[in-house]
Amino acid sequence: MKTKFILGFSLIILSCFLKAQCVSDNCNSKLGTFTYLKTIYIDNTKLVNKPNMVTYLFSKGSTYMVLCCDQAIKGSRLIVNVYDKDKNLIATNKQKKKVYPSIQYPCSATGIYYIESFYEDSKDPCGVNILGFTKS
């Protein structure tokens, strides 16, 4: 009885730890020469009916990078779409069957952009988007 209890308890602790560690801590290093701006946390519990959506003002003359830091498992990749203020699709990291881990966007029109994130298909999604910039 005691052994089963300790085993169950350990599993709870482990799952809690694993959930917090599903994304590599140094994912931001993939920004390379881009300067870190923000981490976009994705509330996975709210992704069932609608994707995560945030806005950011992109300025012309700068190139932005949206990094997708996920578990890199086929079928649970993080998809990111970027729309302009009128909701025209500007960029997506899913091209046909390939999912890219990032998007680089040299901005030619200053304005508010929508960054939409969701998972391909996953029962236990986990990830964040990281936004960086550099001068074009």
């Binding site: 500007i90 990291n93 680089q104 966007y105 040299p106 030619s108 304005g111």
Partner: peptide
């Protein structure tokens, strides 16, 4: 790397 070639314009 995936790079977007944007041709939209904004002026002020």
């Amino acid at each position: 790397q995936l790079v977007i070639v944007n041709k939209s314009k904004s002026t002020v």
